[in-house]
Simulated scan of single mutants.
Amino acid sequence: MIYLVRHGQTAFNAEGRLQGHVDSPLTELGRAQAAQAGAALKRLTGGGEGWRIISSPLGRARDTAEAIRAALGTPDLEIDARLIELSWGDWDGGLRADLKARHPEAFGETGWAFTAPIGEAYDAAQARLRDWLSTLPPEPERRIIAVSHGVAGRLLRGVYAGLSKPETLAQQVPQDACFRLSGGAIERLAY
Rank of each mutant, 00 (worst) to 15 (best):
L26A: 05
L26G: 03
L29N: 14
L29H: 12
L29T: 15
A32S: 14
Q33K: 04
A34H: 11
A37D: 11
A37P: 15
A39H: 08
A40S: 13
L41K: 00
R43W: 06
L44C: 07
G46C: 07
G47V: 05
G47D: 11
E49T: 08
G50Q: 12
R52S: 10
S55A: 15
S55F: 13
S55I: 09
G59L: 15
G59E: 12
A61F: 10
R62I: 15
D63G: 08
T64V: 02
A65V: 07
E66L: 10
E66H: 04
A71Q: 00
G73I: 08
T74Q: 05
D76F: 11
D76H: 03
L77H: 10
D80L: 02
A81L: 04
A81F: 02
R82W: 06
E85I: 09
S87K: 04
S87E: 10
W88N: 15
G89T: 10
W91M: 14
G93E: 14
G94P: 13
L95W: 07
A97E: 15
L99A: 15
L99W: 11
K100D: 12
K100H: 06
P104E: 11
E105F: 01
E105C: 01
A106M: 03
F107H: 01
E109G: 07
T110A: 04
T110I: 06
F114A: 00
P117D: 09
I118D: 09
I118N: 03
I118T: 05
E120I: 05
A121F: 03
A124M: 01
A124R: 00
A125Q: 01
A125L: 06
A127V: 01
A127K: 00
R128S: 06
R128D: 13
R130E: 13
D131W: 10
W132I: 01
T135S: 11
E139A: 13
P140C: 01
R143S: 04
A146P: 14
V147Y: 13
H149R: 02
H149N: 08
V151P: 08
A152R: 02
A152C: 07
G153S: 04
G153K: 00
G153N: 04
R154L: 11
L156A: 09
R157I: 03
R157L: 03
V159L: 03
V159H: 02
Y160E: 13
K165T: 12
K165A: 12
P166E: 12
E167S: 08
T168F: 04
T168M: 07
T168C: 05
Q171T: 09
Q171G: 07
Q172G: 08
